[in-house]
Amino acid sequence: MSKKIFIVEDEADIVEFYIEVLEMYGFDVVGSARNGAQAVVKFAAMSEHPDIIIMDHRMPIMTGIEATTKILEIDPDVKIIFASADDSIEKQARQLGVVSFEKKPFDLDRLIAAVREISFPDN
């Protein structure tokens, strides 16, 4: 059964790239949000939560750090991959409980590797 992934990113091109790559590699992208606030609302409304969230940080309305805090309050088991150009927030993000921090720009291989590491930790 393929892992369900939710994308939080304000850049439409990047969202499109993520979806293209992840689906190409067999992952199920269940939705996306353009900012943190939207992500929290959508996540809370979901009857079945995704396995993985790819979370940007610097977004309008609500940052990735704030959204992560709220989402982990709703479901502490959800795995969050932080994908940001701001390496200054890496420590804070890890303290909140994100499982991976990928610094932009990273390539396709790095994205797939990160998702796979979470999806199949035994491999």
Partner: peptide, 21 residues
């Protein structure tokens, strides 16, 4: 500028990878 350029580079790099495939 750094943030936005990084995002542009990120999208660009992703698309280059997709193109390569």
């Amino acid at each position: 500028m750094s943030h936005d350029l990084t995002n542009f580079n990120h999208a660009l790099l992703g698309n280059i990878d997709l193109l390569d495939h």
